[in-house]
Design a protein around this nucleic acid. Structure first.
Lengths: 147, 147
DNA sequence: TACACTAATTATAACGATTACAATGTAAGA
DNA sequence: TCTTACATTGTAATCGTTATAATTAGTGTA
């Protein structure tokens, strides 16, 4: 099933005139198979075995290409590096304020919020981002190393 | 009315043992009166007339103090600097993808989402953050300088 | 009010994520 | 195969943010 996702993503890129390079293929594949929310550096380190000469700039460049194509979302937090998330179906993020763990969860229908906001602000709304912050069970049971 | 907010904020700080310095007073005052969502540098530049010797580190330090005290929220985006928002009552942000403008809007009751997420993930939920992205009317009418 | 204690501020250097740049390599259509 | 524009690479630069050490200044107490 992730094969289909990969093929769809590659087709989507091709149709907008983006060349398919081995690096792009590998980055996309990694993003799709990754259940975590990798940073650019995570991706770089995971792929440097297969692409010993790959530059970290390539990772950043292509993540930007994918983001512009709507294939990938960038999640930014205060201190550290951005995390990137392959866009599948709509889901939101539950984030642990202590250890930084991110868990996906699904919730239907925040379309209503988009409609209201569009009406009130006059914006044309494209998408939204919802994140919940709290403490995960591990950190509740073991409140040792808060950041 | 913003006088009351300022007094409340100062009292809240004092009660947690945080000293009230002129710089802190000024930063809080600026945050409360600002309708925009200033960056640390915005605040620094706005106050350097009154505090010619103030360091940018002071701004960052105090924004962190205020954030830990729950007086201020930090909004992070991809490229640029964080923006800071004095916490009043709950509101969300409508953000223009072209020009970066941020407009507040109100929407009630996303408590239900928090409950569901807590149940599904086992997290103890503290708060959430919702942001809508789109294009503002200015940029729709005048699609000149997209970033 | 003056003192002492401790926290806050300042100035600057360091850090780290991200991007710019120029040179080289390569995908893909003719 | 050839060509050309786009992609990659390696490195330097940028810029927001933080660490550090020395100095300054709140605030409770006498």
């Amino acid at each position: 099933m992730s094969e289909v996702q990969l093929k769809d993503a590659l087709d989507a890129l091709k149709s907008t005139g983006v060349r398919i390079t081995p690096q792009r293929h590998a980055i996309l594949e990694y993003m799709i198979h990754s259940t975590a929310h990798p940073t650019a550096d995570d991706i770089y380190r995971a792929l440097e075995k297969t692409f010993p000469n790959m530059s970290v700039a390539t990772v950043y460049n292509n993540l930007r290409v994918f983001r512009k194509a709507g294939l990938v979302k960038e999640l930014t937090y205060g201190d550290s590096s951005s995390r990137f998330d392959f866009v599948t179906h709509d889901h939101y993020h539950m984030i642990c304020s202590d250890c930084g763990k991110i868990v996906d969860f699904h919730y239907p229908g925040l379309d209503e919020v988009e409609h209201l906001a569009s009406h009130v602000t006059g914006f044309q709304v494209d998408y939204h981002r919802l994140e919940l912050y709290g403490t995960c069970q591990d950190c509740i049971e073991n409140p040792a190393k808060a950041q």
